[in-house]
């Protein structure tokens, strides 16, 4: 398959661990210069998929092509052109901020002594220019993530794998990183992002791929997914208020979803929900347009996955 416009091409990928199928016929295409988000509940196969894409584990079946290189056979060449920001913090605690960049460049076969200027640019990009010599223990969580990001950029990769890059950060630190991701995307790099934050997916990604049970269950732009998989409006109200409104009865224009102590009532027309609400005006309810979170629940259910 010759597809020059694709940065990533995955066909019918399968991986089984001790009889348990983790990736089950996954196919995926990421166009160059786009930002694609991989969504899915815990255990949906996101992490295994990323490990397969990096050539860290072998598929039982299927084809993977990353930047034109067959993986796992040519995984090393593919990784030479990829930047990876992992889920866990694996910065080198034996080194300070700049030394982390310095030694990482060597793994790409670069001479770090010739890269001083690039390191300065990267440190400025990450807002770490004043922390050059700081030991890692003095960095905040957000700074560490930014350092992990620029460490993945020392070799000027054309594509980035970002595995839950903002998990555990405060809103400011997250916003700061989003700006950096957008800039990298504007520079023409391809981004593959996994995240649990729908807001992050909605803001950053051109396309989203929803995984569940190792398969793609939906894909498209955030707007498309909302349009295709859920009704445009939703009323959120406490479960007991729902019973008072007689939601148990069959009403063809409404779809209800029970999630713990909350009922979500979906409708094509806002008026349907307004008329429902008017029958019981003091109910503490929230009427809003549907979003990706609703899509996520609609596609992957709402049982706890851990």
């Amino acid at each position: 398959m010759d597809d020059n416009a694709a940065a990533l091409l995955v066909t019918d990928l399968r991986k089984t661990y001790g009889g348990r199928t983790v990736v089950d016929g996954l196919s995926l295409r990421v166009a160059r210069g786009t930002c694609v988000g991989l969504l899915g509940p815990n255990g949906a196969g996101k992490t295994t998929t990323l490990r397969l894409l990096l050539g860290h584990t072998r598929p039982d079946a299927g084809r993977i092509e990353v930047l034109g290189f067959s993986v796992p056979e040519a995984a090393s060449q593919a990784r030479a052109r990829l930047g990876v920001v992992g889920q866990s913090d694996n910065l080198d605690p034996d080194f300070n901020v700049e030394e982390n960049l310095y030694h990482y460049a060597r793994y790409y076969g670069l001479d770090p002594r010739a890269l001083r200027e690039r390191f300065t640019d990267l440190l400025t990009f990450a807002g770490l220019e004043d922390r050059r010599d700081a030991p890692l223990r003095e960095l905040s969580g957000g700074m560490r993530r930014r350092l992990a990001l620029i460490r993945a950029l020392v070799h000027d990769p054309v594509m980035l794998f970002l595995d839950e890059p903002t998990t555990g950060l405060d809103p400011q630190a997250r916003f700061h990183l989003w700006q950096r991701f957008r800039q990298l995307r504007r520079e023409g790099r391809t981004l593959l992002l996994t995240t649990h934050y729908m807001e992050e997916a909605e803001r950053l990604c051109d396309r989203l791929v929803v995984l569940d049970h190792g398969r793609v269950v939906a894909e498209g732009s955030p707007q498309e997914l909302v349009r295709r998989h859920v009704e445009p409006f939703v009323l959120e109200l406490p479960a007991e208020a729902g019973r008072d409104l007689g939601l148990g009865e069959e009403r063809h224009e409404l779809r209800t979803l029970h999630l713990e102590e909350t009922v979500f009532v979906y409708a094509r027309a806002r008026e349907n929900l307004e008329s429902l609400l008017s029958r019981c005006p003091e109910t503490p309810a929230r009427l809003r347009p549907s979003n990706l979170e609703d899509v996520f629940f609609a596609l992957t259910g709402h049982a706890l996955r851990d």
Partner: peptide, 9 residues
């Protein structure tokens, strides 16, 4: 893990 993300196997 950090090193394994680079070309090194």
């Amino acid at each position: 893990e950090g090193i394994h993300a680079t070309p090194l196997g």
